[in-house]
Write a protein that binds this DNA or RNA. Sequence first.
RNA 1: AGGGGUGUAGCCAAGCGGUAAGGCAACGGGUUUUGAUCCCGUCAUGCGUAGGUUCGAAUCCUGCCACCCCUGCCA
Length: 556
Amino acid sequence: MTEEKAKPANFIEKIIQDDLASGKHDNIQTRFPPEPNGYLHIGHAKAICVNFGLAQQFGGQCNLRFDDTNPEKEEDEYVQAIQSDVKWLGFDWAGDIHYTSDYFDQLHEWAVYLIKEGKAYVCDLSAEQTKEYRGSFEKVGTNSPFRDRSIEENLALFEKMRLGEFDEGACGLRVKIDMTSPNMSMRDPYIYRIKKATHHQTGDKWCIYPSYDYAHGQSDALEGISHSVCTLEFADHRPLYDWFIENLPVPAQPHQYEFGRLSINYTVTSKRKLRALVEGKVVNGWDDPRMPTISGMRRRGYTPAAIRHFCDSLAVSKTDGTVDVAQLEFFIRDDLNQNAPRGTCVINPLKVVINNMAADHSENITVPFLQDRPEMGERDVPFSSEIYIDQNDFKEEYSKKFKKKFCVGKRIRLRHGYVIEAEGFEKDEQGNIVQVNAKLIENTLGCDPEDGDKPKGVVHWISCAHAVEAELRMYKRLFSDENPDGGNKDFMECLTPDSLEVTTALIEPALAGVAPESVFQFEREGYYVADRVDHSIDKPVFNLTIGLREDKGLAS
RNA sequence: AGGGGUGUAGCCAAGCGGUAAGGCAACGGGUUUUGAUCCCGUCAUGCGUAGGUUCGAAUCCUGCCACCCCUGCCA
């Protein structure tokens, strides 16, 4: 297994090292704060690895906190799915799960505190008016006409908001900062809004909900988070984050640090777009193996280690780059090459009849599941006079390009088995080769032919009488455009036409009964996983995780 | 002169004044009972750009250019 070699410290690690050295912090506490409004994707995997990884690395802890301040968009289904994804990735949060909604009482109390301090006010401006008053990038904002209400009036109004006496949008609580700030998020941001929605955690207790900006930093403080790591787009909010920490009697002084969000080419990492794919039935759910969601990658056969290694290979920096999907693919191949047991699957069967064997001959060849890993065991592979090889491995005419293929007059090694030599073939009316006639070269199990005529190539094969049918689901990348997320194009127009191809193939008997989620390398074909949902011994179903690397200059 | 952030190879990235790490990709070659794996080798006289400081600059200074983010009572 490739254990991570010494990597240079990233800028956040350096900050933490300094904070530990200077005594600013004795203990490192981070958090992963997803909003339960969708499934986690590969971008979240990076955030998870960064936050949990930092805690591990510096002997601290990482909380899992659901940032659930918007009941209209959030659901319990997502909080369950997120927990299971984080665990599957191999991380354990410290103590209980946290919810921002755990702090609604405290947050409300602090809002009242801000009103009493004269730093917050109830504003009756409509959404459109708020926008007008806010000004623009070039134009400073104008103070709301409600900005100077008395503390008593604000207290009374805010209480009425809480009691549900106003309609949604009728008013909201704003913090009094600076309508002329060049930073738009400092122009008297709203910190409480009315939403008469049932919350998945707090039910109907509240009809006013805190905003992200108001809730986040205070939740961090309440949990004793030392380093609150988020993505770059929140950098503009840092002054606001700090403003709350300075103006409220919070129990700790957390700091926010931002790093670049992960983008990968040929895919999208935006919950909005992923949801559109699910709702538009472009894919079969959030866990469709084509999805860059954690659950989709899991169903595709990606392993937690491969995803972790990929994330660890990424930089934690402030550049917004796009990583080549080949880098992700490298890590899944790397893991599976080392750890996936091997098996045989013939996708386009071509019968080979071995004429110099008794028609009823049958023997078992014992084959290790993984060469050089005896602890992974071995299986019996039945061999008989009629076998299937792949159509692509037999060529009617020899050519240099096909020097490792099988053709008349040439010998080929049956993987883990004997050497055979082709003597002729038969075609159907359409001219397709339907059968190859061959002879077995004696004494070639585990050794070369005695006459010194060594075969150039190796093919995988299955005994006809023992082959088991399996459904194969072969996936291509969902998007054929390198940057479906980019610019002004419609990502739905960038879809690969046939990204899923379902076919029937033949697998060796030992593979039929494997447990769902077992990943194999079907030798010379690729890595396949027994489908988590649909695979059974009666109807084996395998998903293509990823193909083997191929020698580029070669056609098949 | 709105504000914030970023520019090092096809991609990601280290480098923090002493003469361009590493990974992915690509390309050569070797081994191989998987055209896989593995092994070996090649791949920036150059660090967005123009000047300046210095014995010496990707690193310091100045100007310019490009890209990303910000005007939700979303996160």
